[in-house]
């Protein structure tokens, strides 16, 4: 799964396949982290009321 594992070989197959996987995981992970942090900061700043969703506390 990671370079250095018994099953790992530095060949095209592993680099492409695992590269693709880690790339996808990276995007998901980073995206999610970004959302959470941004939401946390926005919450801390208390400007949660202005997004214009048709919600009741507007």
């Amino acid at each position: 799964m990671f370079p250095g594992f018994f099953e790992w070989i530095w060949d095209g197959g592993h680099m492409l396949f695992m590269g693709g996987l880690w790339y996808a995981l990276g995007i998901i992970g980073l995206g999610l982290t970004y959302c959470i942090f941004k939401a946390a900061i926005e919450t801390a700043q208390g400007d949660g009321e202005g997004h214009g969703h048709g919600d009741e506390h507007h």
Binding site: I28, Y34, A39, D55, H57
Partner: peptide
Amino acid sequence: LNKVPFFHHLAHNMHGIMAVFAAT
């Protein structure tokens, strides 16, 4: 749930970059 500010923001932000997730 949306009354909780954090959740509200989180949902909003996730909607914001949903295209990236969808593409992935």
